[in-house]
Amino acid sequence: MTTTSDAPANPTTPGPAVVAAVGGGTAPAPDADLAVHLLRLGDDALVLGQRLCQWITRAPTVEEDLALSNIALDLIGHARVLLDRAGRLDGTGRTEDDLAFTRPEREFTNALLTELPGGDFAVTVARQLAYTHYAVLYYEALAGCADAELAAFGARAAKEVAFHRLHADRWILRLGRGTPKSARRMRLGLERVWPYTGELFDEDDVMRRLAASGTVPSPAPLRPAWERRVTEVVARAGLTVPAPSWSARGGRDGLHTEEFGPLIAELQSVHRQFPGGTW
């Protein structure tokens, strides 16, 4: 992290950061908004990383154990940067571990896509496809933001996620154009996760204020580019992008699936068993 000695304590408010009060009421300080946003991104990475950890030693090949653990490792790395920053911004002084291991389920704000339970390898590939294409676009946009720390993170994360995207692209092609069985499973995988993809691009008041102030970009405008890219890859795999009749929402507000509780319980179990522990 770059900390020049005489930098202002809060480098996140660029010049024109006039608090734009959208929809009336008293708008929270930009720091609080940014903390909410970074927590969402961090929770996405943490929860998806946790789901991928569940594959390790269970993957179709040892090579795939290695590939999935590589991706999980990068995601946990992203979560650490994002949660750490969110904790510094939200005024509570919570560390990355406080945020990961002591919040109750309702305070996690990951998109539901990232928490969907297991399923077969095709479900994982479908989710990786949706997430990585979104994350590359979003982190590339973040790399252009005025906050030097976040911009540097965005640039690094975009590169890492681009490799994860190659992994997803490679697998959807192999499953889609492999055997009739794998094509069917891949199609079911896409159908399973697609209703959960819209939430990645949702924009609420927090996001609108951050975008309007130029603090960080909104994901909403990236959706057409995402649609184009995933449609192209899915088509190459001989499949079609599902057109779900419904769209899942709630994760950003802490309203999760029932399967989320056990995931968080597992994540936090050791940490919670040893109050005051140091690790």
């Binding site: 290695l66 490679r170 192999r174």
Partner: peptide, 20 residues
Amino acid sequence: SVRAADPDAALATARDLYTR
């Protein structure tokens, strides 16, 4: 060496295995 069905998978595996 690595095992892989095709060159792209071979490169990806080699990357994961030999460039950690």
